[in-house]
Amino acid sequence: MAPPGRDRRRSGGSIGARGMTYRRRMVVLAAAVAVLAAVAAASVLHAAHRAGRRQQAQAGGPPVSAGHVSLAAGSRRLMVFRNMAWGPHRDELATVPAADPGGPRTASGVECLRFHAAAGTGICLQAVRGAVQDTYRAVVLDSRLRVLRRFPLAGIPTRARVSPSGRMVAWTVFVSGDSYAGTAFSTRTSILDTRTWRLRSSLETYAITKDGRSYRAADVNFWGVTFADDTHFYATLATGGRTYLVRGDDAARTVRTLRANVECPSLSPDATRLVFKKRVKGASPDAPWRLYALDLRTMRETPLAEHRSVDDQVVWSGPDTVVYAMAGDYGTDLWTVPADGTGTARRIMTAALAPAYVG
Score class of each variant (00 low, 15 high):
residue 177 G to H: 13
residue 197 W to V: 04
residue 175 V to N: 02
residue 179 S to D: 15
residue 177 G to P: 08
residue 167 R to Q: 15
residue 156 I to F: 15
residue 176 S to Q: 15
residue 200 R to T: 07
residue 173 V to G: 12
residue 188 R to T: 00
residue 199 L to G: 05
residue 164 P to Y: 05
residue 158 T to G: 03
residue 172 T to N: 11
residue 170 A to Y: 06
residue 186 S to F: 01
residue 180 Y to E: 02
residue 156 I to A: 08
residue 187 T to P: 06
residue 177 G to M: 13
residue 167 R to N: 14
residue 201 S to V: 00
residue 165 S to A: 15
residue 194 T to Q: 11
residue 176 S to F: 11
residue 184 A to P: 00
residue 180 Y to F: 09
residue 201 S to W: 01
residue 197 W to L: 09
residue 156 I to S: 10
residue 161 R to V: 00
residue 169 V to Q: 10
residue 156 I to K: 08
residue 182 G to E: 02
residue 178 D to F: 15
residue 165 S to K: 14
residue 195 R to V: 03
residue 184 A to I: 09
residue 155 G to M: 08
residue 180 Y to S: 02
residue 193 D to S: 12
residue 185 F to D: 12
residue 184 A to K: 12
residue 201 S to T: 01
residue 199 L to Y: 09
residue 162 V to D: 02
residue 174 F to P: 11
residue 189 T to Y: 07
residue 176 S to C: 13
residue 169 V to N: 10
residue 195 R to W: 06
residue 199 L to R: 04
residue 188 R to H: 02
residue 164 P to L: 03
residue 169 V to P: 05
residue 163 S to G: 05
residue 158 T to F: 01
residue 199 L to E: 08
residue 166 G to I: 06
residue 183 T to Y: 07
residue 175 V to F: 05
residue 194 T to S: 14
residue 194 T to A: 12
residue 186 S to D: 10
residue 170 A to F: 06
residue 184 A to C: 10
residue 189 T to R: 04
residue 195 R to E: 13
residue 164 P to R: 04
residue 190 S to K: 01
residue 200 R to G: 01
residue 165 S to G: 14
residue 163 S to P: 02
residue 193 D to N: 15
residue 184 A to Y: 11
residue 165 S to P: 14
residue 169 V to G: 09
residue 199 L to F: 12
residue 168 M to E: 14
residue 198 R to Q: 04
residue 194 T to F: 06
residue 199 L to W: 10
residue 199 L to V: 09
residue 161 R to Q: 08
residue 180 Y to C: 01
residue 199 L to C: 07
residue 164 P to D: 06
residue 171 W to R: 01
residue 155 G to N: 07
residue 183 T to F: 05
residue 175 V to Y: 05
